[in-house]
Amino acid sequence: MPLQQSRPPLPSADKRWKLVNATMRRNGYAGHALIETLHSVQDAFGFLDETSLRFVAASLDLPLSKVFGVATFYHIFMLKPKGRHACVVCTGTACYIKGAGALLEGIQERYGVDPGDTTEDDRLSVLTARCVGACGLAPAVVLDGSMIGKQTSDTLIAQLEELD
């Protein structure tokens, strides 16, 4: 009979670790729950840091290299913290045809950040997405989780300016 692996202790008293642990428990600590678990880490903490990757690897009894491999393979997982606000510009085909490029240029011109980067004051992260499925509203932007459609560079910058 294989030895029952002892689970590692939670990295800190932070309650969010309990959420992560709950996801793993629900899946019986099976290795195939890795992606689900990483999703729940990112939902709770906003990004994946080394502590969380080590904790997940030890809990699911997976090599750290494999966990790191999965975390870096999928675009959705972030290894760096995001700024206070996230602006995701859709670059799907419909948005591309209708001028998503101009939105990104406008942001670059105003804030000097490229997709994937965060402004120096940690105020705004700029990201791109491969089609958010709102092609009827092209070009679409997801600003802090809510979708805003039919944007121009001017209307988008105006909304970004209003963020605190």
């Binding site: 799907g92 085909t93 419909a94 491969r130 089609c131 499925g133 709102a134 092609c135 009827g136």
Partner: peptide
Amino acid sequence: DEGDPGAF
């Protein structure tokens, strides 16, 4: 996993 951009 509807990945094609422009398909919804």
